[in-house]
Computed example of a mutant assay.
Amino acid sequence: MKIAFVGKGGSGKTTLASLLISHLADQRRPVLALDADINQHLAVALGATEDEAAALPALGAHLPLIKDHLRGANPRIASADAMIKTTPPGAGSRLLRVAEDNPVYRACVREVGGARLAVTGPFAERDLGVACYHSKVGAVELLLNHLVDGDGEYVVVDMTAGADSFASGLFTRFDVTFLVCEPTVRSVAVYRQYLDHARDFGVRIAVVGNKVSDERDLEFLRDRVGDDLLTWLGRSDHVRAAERGEVRPIGRLEQANRAALAAMCALAEATDKDWPTYQRQAVEFHLRNARAWGNDRAGADLADQVDPDFVISPDALSRSGHAPVPN
């Protein structure tokens, strides 16, 4: 399952992502965590020190390696330099699995708090005034376009806050998007905005209430979110301890809050994979980006990178020389 966490800034999005990642790692589920937020806090939320988090390799710094590896022997892509963040896979491309050994993972993925984590990297001083953060997130979009996850395998992405997630096609790369919502008017407004933007793309959104103190908070969310409210987490001593830098085992999380994590996993695992739609949306956003800026930058028509007969799937993974994904 590919899962995204979105929500208003300060809603607890990164905290909930880290709790779910720790929950999965504790159950020895194959999980790959990706920090795609402009505020790079997921590593610390998983238990790294600030110095350890700052030392993590950035995906954006390894973009040439990522492109070269994913390109493989795809004859439609003249060179790794010709790839852009939306380039979809085709026959000959190298596909990825959640848990495997490959040059990209060796360069960019590190174990943090029992989970495997890759980060886009922070917004650096050299970027100020000349770049947008979504240029860094492009590495995540490329990886997800080429990644085949099997049953019981998880990719969990902490997205940037608010509606900024819609600045690229990355928002379509997930089986379930968990929108973290506080019982506040401003947090609900972000939920409605996200719902409006995602409606035409078949994005499955489930709301997870956070910082729910009492029945009035819960009724507020039920009234404004309705059936989209999947579950909720209450105030947590476990989370408060983590915010003070005290790392506790996930088993010490309050029982009701662990039940909320289990409900999130149950929803994800009950969601059917739709590989043809996944490929179609990758192609759609690739063509949008090609027309908007990619063709001019490449000096070529990047529509030629699209393989009309290819659909990423477990079968395509097997044909590319990988072992079958687990059933």
Rank of each mutant, 00 (worst) to 15 (best):
F171D: 04
F171I: 07
T172A: 00
R173E: 12
R173D: 06
F174H: 08
D175R: 09
D175N: 10
D175M: 11
D175V: 01
D175G: 14
V176T: 09
T177A: 08
T177G: 08
T177H: 11
F178L: 10
F178D: 04
C181M: 07
C181T: 12
C181I: 11
C181Q: 01
C181Y: 00
C181A: 11
E182Q: 14
E182K: 03
P183I: 08
P183C: 03
T184L: 01
T184P: 01
V185E: 10
V185C: 08
R186H: 13
R186Y: 11
S187I: 02
S187V: 06
S187C: 14
V188S: 09
V188I: 15
V188M: 04
V188D: 06
A189S: 14
A189G: 11
Y191V: 02
Y191Q: 06
R192W: 12
R192E: 15
R192V: 08
R192G: 05
Q193A: 12
L195R: 14
L195I: 00
D196K: 13
H197N: 06
H197R: 14
A198Y: 04
R199G: 02
R199Q: 14
R199I: 01
R199D: 06
D200P: 01
D200K: 15
D200G: 12
F201Y: 15
F201S: 09
F201E: 13
F201G: 02
F201I: 04
G202L: 03
V203T: 09
V203W: 04
V203H: 09
V203A: 14
V203L: 09
R204Y: 03
I205M: 12
I205L: 14
A206Q: 08
A206G: 10
V207E: 03
V207Y: 11
V207T: 15
V207P: 11
